[in-house]
Amino acid sequence: MALAFRNTLRAARSLMVRGYAEAAPAIKEGEMALTLAAGNKVFYNKVAVKQIDVPSFSGAFGILPKHVPTLAVLKPGVVTVYESDGKQAKIFVSSGTITVNEDSSVQVLAEEAHPVESLDRSAAQEALSKAQSEYNSAGNEKAKAEAAIAVEVAEEIVKAAS
């Protein structure tokens, strides 16, 4: 709600300055439109932000406006969003995709995402030890690979939830 309000405010302001109707969510110089959505919640829907740091399989990287178009696959970890008013939001994503388009709009789609404040360290540790024991007792390669993923994710969550 507050975000939407801010957006309208900004749109109204830019309207006043320029004196003609621009596309509604006015994207200023040095900002880009971010869509960050997960299966459980939409965090940003075409909101102007300054910078986004994302973890990906080809390494963590930061996206600034006018980033070269790219595709990437999310690795479990923390996405940091630098909002246009200087605030930082840290969101833990399980997995998903990142798309940087030619028009510099960014889409981060995750299967499951939660603000780091909602993470529970002890629950994550419990999940980690369970995953580790599963890894050690896994009978076939597939189960072992699944357990390895679980260990990796749980480790990341423990790290993020400190």
Partner: peptide
């Protein structure tokens, strides 16, 4: 990656990851 060699695809990877994340949330 190791998981793809084991016959999993990214969708499988993603559901395992999401499952663990859901389990690690505050009650």
């Amino acid at each position: 990656s190791a998981w793809r060699q084991a016959g999993l695809n990214y969708i499988n990877y993603s559901s395992v990851a999401a499952q663990i994340l859901r389990r690690s949330l505050k009650p």
